[in-house]
Simulated assay, not measured.
Amino acid sequence: MIEAELFVRQALERGFGLWSGVPCSYLKPFINHVIDDPSVRYIPAVNEGDAVAIASGSHLAGIRGVAMFQNSGLGNAVNPLTSLNNTYRIPVLLIVTLRGEPGAPPDAVQHGLMGPITTAMLDVMQIPWEYFPDEEAKVGEVLDRAIASMDGTSLPYALVMRKGSVAKKALKSSMEIRVPKVSRRGGAFFETDANASRSDMLKAILDAAGDDVPLLGTTGYTGRELYALNDRSGNFYMAGSMGCVSSIGLGISTVRSGRVIAVDGDGAILMRMGALATNGYQRPENLVHIVLDNGMHESTGGQATVSASVDLCAVAAACGYRNVFETRSPEELRDLLSQKDLSGITFIRARTIPGSPEDLPRPTQRPEELSKRFAAFLQNR
């Protein structure tokens, strides 16, 4: 059994500067410590996949990230672990608890299957792993092996935590209550007569961003159209990891200054709408979250989403976004992004019509090349 402070201190010394996670009783002393420790950036996530995406954004921005959660939530993290971290070769350190461990004392019934298959799932996802250290002398060795593996493979590394690995630690602080305060709100719900295309809106975003602002384009046609319009080192074209774009943006904006623009889609934001709560609570001053909403999953055949029945601006406002706008005009979107006095986390819902250019290209660079290029852009800003 080790003290949480020992592990966290040695991890900090090795560059692990941002932690994100979802609670588990095995992790209780660990999470209690990172919450109380002012030297640690800790972002509580609403689900395990978001924690992985937040840690991944931090890594892209040059700060090693840690995602920690219960093994029962490992399934929620499979999407980004396989289609983001593996595809783009983004290493994060995972701490996954082993509830329902075979041969251990009986656990709650819901862990009956996940306990025996946890390490097998990591193996199937090609994530190297070892057990979380339970002796002080082993902490440094384990962290060094994890770093060597991550640096060598550019893949995540998992530490599987058994019960009783970390000594008890009470939580001293309480989470600050942050009441939503919205400064402005444009447009009106049910104004659905959009006449601008996705490309029109992306051109407006590119014009306003210039050369210095990083842009993240969600999976599907958005990233591909962004690539077709202007391939630049400051663009990150997501493939897979649907719904994670704003969480990656949160990880970046937490550890790097300067505006970050995350371009989402209506289907993607609905898939992981809980990320709005995390973003709105953290409230990074420099994050702009834009949703291009055409009411459908266009790249998969045009199946309708329920976005027309959801006031996404009201959701963002209720979650704590500082500035909330709704627009149907590329010119208005460009003007909004060009405002010099626009400060605080911002949400913009931009209505668009369906349709995309014919013969839409895909990036010719390999995903790992794109992520390295993007990381270099962020870290050289």
Rank of each mutant, 00 (worst) to 15 (best):
Y227Q: 01
Y227W: 05
Y227E: 01
Y227K: 00
A228M: 00
A228N: 06
A228G: 01
A228I: 00
L229N: 01
N230H: 13
N230W: 11
N230D: 13
D231G: 03
D231Q: 10
D231P: 14
D231W: 07
D231L: 06
R232C: 05
R232G: 04
S233Q: 12
S233W: 10
S233A: 14
G234R: 15
G234D: 08
N235C: 12
N235H: 13
F236V: 01
F236Q: 05
F236C: 02
F236M: 09
M238G: 02
M238S: 00
M238T: 01
M238L: 11
M238A: 01
M238Q: 08
M238N: 03
M238H: 03
A239D: 09
A239I: 11
A239R: 11
A239K: 08
G240M: 00
G240L: 00
G240Q: 05
S241H: 06
M242N: 01
M242T: 00
M242R: 01
M242E: 02
G243D: 06
G243K: 01
C244T: 15
C244Y: 09
C244A: 14
C244D: 12
V245H: 05
V245D: 05
V245K: 04
S246V: 15
S246T: 15
S246N: 15
S247Q: 14
S247N: 15
S247W: 11
S247V: 13
I248T: 07
I248N: 07
I248D: 02
I248S: 04
I248W: 05
G249L: 12
G249K: 13
G249I: 07
G249M: 12
G249E: 12
G249D: 12
L250Q: 12
L250I: 14
L250H: 12
L250A: 11
L250D: 13
L250F: 14
L250T: 14
I252F: 06
I252Q: 04
I252E: 06
S253E: 07
S253G: 09
S253I: 08
S253L: 07
T254M: 13
T254A: 13
T254G: 08
T254D: 10
V255C: 08
V255M: 09
V255G: 08
V255Y: 09
V255K: 09
R256N: 09
R256A: 11
R256E: 10
R256M: 10
R256F: 06
S257K: 14
S257Y: 11
G258I: 11
G258T: 10
G258L: 09
R259L: 05
R259F: 09
R259A: 08
V260P: 09
V260T: 14
I261G: 04
I261D: 05
I261A: 04
I261F: 07
A262F: 04
A262V: 04
A262H: 05
A262Y: 02
A262E: 03
V263Q: 03
V263K: 01
V263L: 02
V263H: 02
D264I: 04
D264A: 09
D264N: 15
D264Q: 15
G265W: 03
G265N: 03
D266Q: 06
G267Y: 00
G267L: 05
G267E: 01
A268K: 03
A268H: 02
A268C: 07
A268V: 00
A268D: 03
A268S: 15
I269F: 03
I269Y: 00
L270K: 04
L270D: 02
L270G: 02
L270M: 14
M271N: 09
M271A: 09
M271D: 07
R272H: 14
R272G: 07
R272L: 12
R272T: 13
R272K: 15
R272S: 11
